[in-house]
Design a protein around this nucleic acid. Structure first.
Lengths: 196, 196, 196, 196
DNA sequence: AGCTAAGCGAGACGGTACGTCCAGTCTTGCA
DNA sequence: TGCAAGACTGGACGTACCGTCTCGCTTAGCT
């Protein structure tokens, strides 16, 4: 029995206005002008409405980014480790270079300032990306492109770790060359058991 | 002709008071209570004194951390890749677990909020750590523990990247097991050319 | 033909709940916690219901106070100016000291903030009290206790004016002594024409 | 030995800007647009500067009114009760009619909302006016225009009480006629002892 | 030895954003 | 169609820090 709650229901319009305004302010300024006050003003929404629905600025940003990015990185159907991973990493790099990078850096920054948001960021964002990459690697194991003794989580840490590292520090490029190097390294590691 | 400037010279006492207070506030609260106001109060120093000598809060934190951590991670004399790298990574993990991790996370967060500080953070902090690791790897190449065709920068990115990734996201442990896995992977990759 | 209106009729229960809650909140806090929100919550009533029936918070308060105080100050049957006025003023003082004073002060405060409520306050509240006092004075004129040339409105202003003044400023007591002094003054003034 | 306090001294400019802006906003709107936010904006002053120096909006208003009104009601040198009091009350009425009335009403309203401000209002404002009137009456006693047995405080309450009453309720005019009536009443009461 | 100019602490300044409270309005479903 | 519930826009609240400023007081080096 679905009990409908009394009272005026949440305004979907207000919700979308907040998320869109947040996303725009974020991409405009890289986070410098992103304040609750500014979001409220731009969205034409009262501040209490924002505080009613999100526990912190960070959570608005996370939802706004998810709201936009839902379908941006398509998981390609598995062909071979060489092909599929390379393509996945190349398109990841591309998306980062095209502006998502700044959002990611901002989210990571927020995650360091709020313990509880860090948890939500991990669960709702990072974990999902890890799962996508891991599923590619699992298919590679099934296809015998990676030895079944490999620690896939470790591979994921190596790949995403070095990508985040370059993104956050800014000492190296996020281009196809980097994607290819990473792919080659995974291929090497995937086969290393048979050899040594 | 070195003209000594007239007037009262910079107070070394004030400088140290600021750096120490900053470090204490940082480790106490993980950054939450770290404001210029709080530093000035705790150090018994006027705010203008702080602004005279540091361009931003981030730079104070960076100097405070460097001030404390200068000698914490000793570079061991090279024996073998297996021994020396393992030793280095294990002691890195230990230092991170013992409290430095929180400071690193805070610095990285600040680096995302200020473009120009990010540069200084890279040059004065990250680059130095990279150089230490790279010098170990270079010695490994000299000792034929790593093939001379390897891209050492890439190895550094893999190692430090995955470490930062775990530190920032908090999805995996920073312990000896992780240090050993990383060491093993570097050894595998170092030899992979000869084999495949 | 009296057409009964369609739809649900006004809930008398809701009305009383609002007035009672208002009165309680008012006497509890002297007006500090008296907000429409608080009234609605305490009365278990929706805010729109309140706005439908009263033009402002002030009007609710006025009605709530009238609702409670209707019969508090009985007009005694006229005996003599000395007896009846003294009695009336003494019981007025008593009621003010027993808690009504705070309500009166709050109403007067509200009346200064809203021009149109000030009119309603004057018509529905103050004027009625003035009329009661004036009717006593009129009976005194009839009984020759006051000279018929006296300006009764002026006497009312003197009496109620000095009472409100003490109540609002708080520089003097509202006790029997004050009531008696006022009575004596009225008696003196009432006869002054014959004499001087 | 006068010890000068350390730190930047209070800005007299900011103080005057606040008081002037407050006075203007008050006379413009009768208190409706008078918010700390608006004062800060109009005065070109930060809100914290206001909160540093005044405990509440009411206290700003009080000081602003005092700041403006310091010399508005001159105490005339005593001639006779008939002349001096009449003149004093007439000029009081005039000042009230010319705009001060609204400020007084607003101050009285604020005094009902804040117990501690009510005390300050009484001490710093009302008491001073009472003292002025009482000094006139005292001179009248010295000149034998008022019997020495009269309770002067009571007379003050009657005069100022009825004036405030008319001002706050708005049921009667504040004109020369009223001033004259009050004067006459005081004269009558002043002599009443000899007679009755 | 005294002068002088910069550094020092203290703390007020104009601001910005915070997170909260309440106002007054709107939109539901139930009675 | 009135009601309770409760979400809505909006505005002011009082607070925390920001980065700048103006004080009077050190204090070290140069004359």
């Amino acid at each position: 029995m679905t009990k409908t709650k009394a009272g005026r229901p949440r305004s979907e319009k207000a919700k979308q206005a907040v998320l869109n305004s947040t996303y725009e302010l974020l991409t405009e300024s890289g986070g410098k002008k992103l304040t609750i006050e500014a979001i409220a003003q731009k969205a034409g929404v009262g501040k209490p409405t924002i505080y009613r629905w999100w526990p912190s600025l960070a959570d608005i940003v996370l939802e706004a980014v998810l709201n936009q990015a839902d379908v941006k990185i398509p998981v390609p159907p598995y062909e071979s480790l060489n092909t599929t991973l390379r393509q996945f990493l190349r398109s990841s790099m591309k998306s980062i270079n095209e502006g998502d990078g700044s959002n990611l850096r901002y989210l990571m920054s927020l995650a360091q300032q709020d313990e509880s948001f860090r948890d939500r960021f991990r669960e709702n964002f990072v974990a999902k990306r890890q799962e996508i990459l891991k599923s590619i690697l699992r298919q590679a194991v099934d296809a015998n492109d990676i030895s079944s003794t490999q620690d896939l989580d470790m591979l994921v840490d190596l790949i995403f770790g070095s990508m985040w590292y370059r993104l956050l520090i800014g000492h190296g490029t996020m281009d196809e060359v980097f994607a290819d190097k990473l792919t080659d390294i995974v291929i090497k590691l995937g086969n290393s058991d048979e050899v040594c």
